[in-house]
Design a protein around this nucleic acid. Structure first.
Ligand SMILES: [Mn+2]
Ligand SMILES: [Mn+2]
Ligand SMILES: [Zn+2]
Ligand SMILES: [Zn+2]
Lengths: 142, 142
DNA sequence: GATAGTAATGAGAATCTTGTTCATCGAGCG
DNA sequence: CGCTCGATGAACAAGATTCTCATTACTATC
């Protein structure tokens, strides 16, 4: 759809890049591993290599189109950059990811960094817990 | 020295485990990769395998003796669990690590999790910035 | 202090994730 | 339409961590 994003980033409009953008746009979970994107491509009949998926995602990240997160363990997840910064809560049981933004925390971070003589550029904040969702396999006792 | 920690954790007191504990206790930086520990072992003449270092560190983590952090990129770092929880600031240029604890942030996190129906178990917070240390290779312009 | 039983170790192979190489392909431009 | 250079795919490579399995060494017991 939005090939203008690609052009603005100085990237040629190619089929792999469009498809990957599409998948990121239409995904329910919003936070996808490179492999998950790769599988979706295969499922929709596209013959795109995993190396290309990683390459394109890294380029998208450099262009500010997506951001890369390390929510847990080994595999990075990617999400479309839709304007606002936010942080994440992850359920230890079902892996569900919620997003939040807290101005108080953001400001405290600036303050803390300044107190330590740092000028802050970025931060990573992930909360891990047990969600109380219906579909969560092991809900905490009410 | 403190073999009691090992016994309490239900771990046999072996030479690799004692040496690794020692290195963690005596290290200046306090945050060490498995490889850094491995190199120190080699330097002090111990014939301990890298696999053992990883294995022991994972056991120490499970026993609550150390905690594993993903401060940047690829390699995890380990630090001795010395009582209090804290979070970290990392310098993008020189890699220096500072520690901090902020009660306001801790409380906000609990609040946010509760608002989303999560009971929080853990969290990871890392600030990335530029430090103003003398030894930092590229200090930000004053 | 010697002994048996079991857990721990070392060496190397294996795995998993991500990146690189290089020959081929295709997007963008005239 | 044809050129040029960036993009792709396949295979390979690299880095971090874990696993396998034969050997070793704690620890409890005698
Ligand atoms: Mn998100
Ligand atoms: Mn620390
Ligand atoms: Zn859940
Ligand atoms: Zn620095």
């Amino acid at each position: 759809m939005e090939t203008s994003n690609l052009k603005k980033a100085g990237l040629k409009v190619t089929l792999p890049r469009m498809k990957i953008l599409e998948i990121l746009e239409q995904s329910e979970t919003r936070h996808l591993t490179a492999e998950a994107i790769y599988r979706e491509l295969l499922d929709s009949g596209e013959e795109i290599g995993l190396a290309t998926v990683y390459r394109v995602l890294t380029q998208f990240e450099a262009a500010g189109l997506v951001c890369r997160l390390h929510l847990e363990g080994n595999q990075a997840v990617f999400e479309l950059e839709r304007g606002g910064h936010h942080d994440h809560i992850v359920c230890n049981q079902c892996g569900r990811v919620e997003e939040f933004y807290d101005e108080t925390i953001e400001q405290r971070q600036q303050r803390i960094a300044a107190d330590h003589g740092f000028s802050i550029r970025d931060h990573a904040l992930v909360l891990y817990g047990d969600c109380s969702d219906e579909s969560c396999p092991r809900r905490p006792a009410s």
